[in-house]
Structure formats: structure tokens, C-alpha cells
Write a protein that binds this DNA or RNA. Sequence first.
DNA 1: CGGAATCCCCGTCGATACTG
DNA 2: CAGTATCGACGGGGATTCCG
Lengths: 127, 127
Amino acid sequence: MGGQKKNPELQKACPVRDVLDRLGDRWTVLVMSELQSGTLRFSEIRKRVMDISPRMLAQTLRNLEQDGLVKRDVYPTVPPKVEYTFTSLGESFYERVKAMIDWAADNHDAVRAARERYVAPEAHHAK
Amino acid sequence: MGGQKKNPELQKACPVRDVLDRLGDRWTVLVMSELQSGTLRFSEIRKRVMDISPRMLAQTLRNLEQDGLVKRDVYPTVPPKVEYTFTSLGESFYERVKAMIDWAADNHDAVRAARERYVAPEAHHAK
DNA sequence: CGGAATCCCCGTCGATACTG
DNA sequence: CAGTATCGACGGGGATTCCG
């Protein structure tokens, strides 16, 4: 996905983009769908999402925490233990996301079929 | 959003990513929310979305068309006229997207408030 | 264990210009 | 009008290394 500025002025004005942009990245949706099953530790999420790097998991979780969608609980034990849980805001958000995930699962075949059928419009001079 | 490969093998296996990735980009959601109001011409969408470049609009529309979410009708008149309309697949998809947009609008304040409250976790050695 | 810091690649997007 | 072509930059995110 492409770089480019993410104009903060525009974000202020646009609630949609502001919130939805988080779904743009590779991991947020995947992480949320694991968190759905309840409280999880950092390493547990890692195991479930499998090919996420610790760096990206940390970043994804911090974004979610920052937006008030996920709660982070630190237990100052040794070894350290950190748990992540949806807030109620997060749960209500995930409901909608879930609706989209389900749609994607249900209609994946239709979409893939459409992609296969698709032929590039030869400019407009359809010969 | 960032470059990096988009492993096609993984996409094949993952319906979620496959479909939802489209929402990651800057414009798809905006364009869809205009198309909601009915059939629109290329230039009409441009006027409504305002700061989208012709390049990005064309690309966004082609993606939607490719996925079978939007229908493209070309009238070989002069000057050319091209209309875009949701397919029924697209409409059913947009229903879910709309649910998220509405959530975003409703909870935008809560999210922004959470962001403002947020203080970076000073590593874990909470002094 | 749960991260943070650094390095670097490369896909996306934006701006600009051109065409049937 | 409805696009396409080319270019360059930005910044996401992977790999790796280190730390409390």
C-alpha cells in the first residue's frame, strides 16, 4: 500500500476516514478478529495471527488502544505479562467489522469469479 | 499505505483480506458512498469527491468493477459518456460498509477523545 | 516476555501532461 | 468527456537486533 501524506486537516473534517483508515493496514482486522474471543496476551495473539512480526503487532495494538477500542493491562510480574481486551467501544465497532468479514466470506466466490471474468476495457474504442 | 508485497498465495487463502483490502485505500469508501445515490457519470463522481484525481478515480472504479461491485456502461456518443452503477452485489456490500461509516460518525468523538487522553506507555517500567 | 530502535525496500498515491 | 502515461515521493511494514 502506498505512502503519501494523510493530510491531518482533512482527517479532522472527515470522521469516516479518520476511523476507517485503521482498517486499511494489513493487520488490524486480523488482530481484532482474534480479540473477539476474549482477553489475550501479546504472545497468544502472535501465535494465532502467525505471520505477524512483534513490531507490527505492537503497533497495531497501540493504535487500537489509542483509539479506545482495546484495553491494555500490564501485570508487573517477571516475566512480564500484558493482556489485551476489547473495550465496549471496541466491541461495538467490531460488530460492524464482523458484518463485513462475514460478507466477505459469503461472497468471496462471487468476487473471485467476477475478477476472473473481467476483461480490461480497451480504452473506449471497443473494436 | 505502505509498499510491500501482498503475497498472492495468502490472498487466495484469505477471503477477508482479499475483499477488505479494497477498503484500505483512500478513495473506495468515498466513491461508494456517492454511488449509493444512484447511477453517476465519471465527471459527476469527480465533482462530488472533489479532490480525487482522474487517475485515482479511474483506478478505484476499475477495482470496483473488477470485483463485480459496480457496473460500467459506455455510451459510444460524442462526447463519450460512461455511467457507473452498483450491482446488487455491490449494494449488499455497501450495506455493511454503510454500517461502519455510520458507526464512525456516531463514535468519532469518543475515538478522538480517547486519542487525546492517550499517553504513551513508558515501556513497561512504569516509574 | 513484551516490546523498542534501526535499516531499507517498494507499492501507492498525487501531480502533471497528454489523447481518442 | 473520460480517461491514460510518466514520474517521484512518501511512509508502511518486513527483517533484524537489542533491552528491562
